[in-house]
């Protein structure tokens, strides 16, 4: 008996509204100090370290919308799954160009796959989200696939 119903499988392909963010030298400098970067181009904010992108599109919400755990509400891109223990799987990125102060970047997230497998200790559900980041002019910057595993 599959755990993923036709209704859940039908959510594959859905997208979040695009998110847009401006990159500033000051934000790059803060990130570089916080992460202990040692390359001059990152310390001086001439270019952003690649993982700077992780925080660039974090939602900025009113305090009242942030939960007791300190997290914003889930985006809802991955539907509620019948298995509740969720772990981060892996993240795989392809890079096309660097990130520089003054860039205006757009992120588009899509649920690209939802499938189940029988693990050694029971069923597992895999949710794969693709995040395509481009410049405002449409030049590709990075494409990323992240997997969430529910058991």
């Amino acid at each position: 008996m599959p755990l993923l119903t036709p209704e859940l499988k039908a959510t594959i392909g859905r997208q979040l509204p695009p998110a847009r963010a401006e990159v500033t030298r000051r934000e790059i400098c803060k990130y570089s100090v916080a992460t202990g970067q040692r390359l001059q181009r990152f310390i001086e904010g001439d270019e952003a370290p690649p993982m700077f992108l992780f925080g660039l599109f974090m939602p900025i919400l009113p305090r009242a919308q942030v939960g007791h755990d300190g997290l914003p509400p889930d985006s809802g891109l991955v539907p509620e799954l019948p298995l509740k223990r969720v772990m981060a799987g892996g993240t795989r990125q392809t890079w096309f160009r660097g990130i520089y102060p003054g860039d205006v970047l757009v992120s588009r997230q899509t649920l690209v796959d939802l499938f189940e497998k029988e693990g050694a200790q029971g069923p597992l559900i895999f949710a794969v989200v693709e995040n395509c980041v481009e410049t405002e002019a449409g030049a590709p910057v990075m494409t990323e696939r992240s997997t969430r595993i529910a058991r």
Partner: peptide
């Protein structure tokens, strides 16, 4: 510093 820089308030 890191969580401030990425705007992550997870406790």
């Amino acid at each position: 510093m890191y969580n401030a820089a990425i705007w992550n308030s997870h406790r």
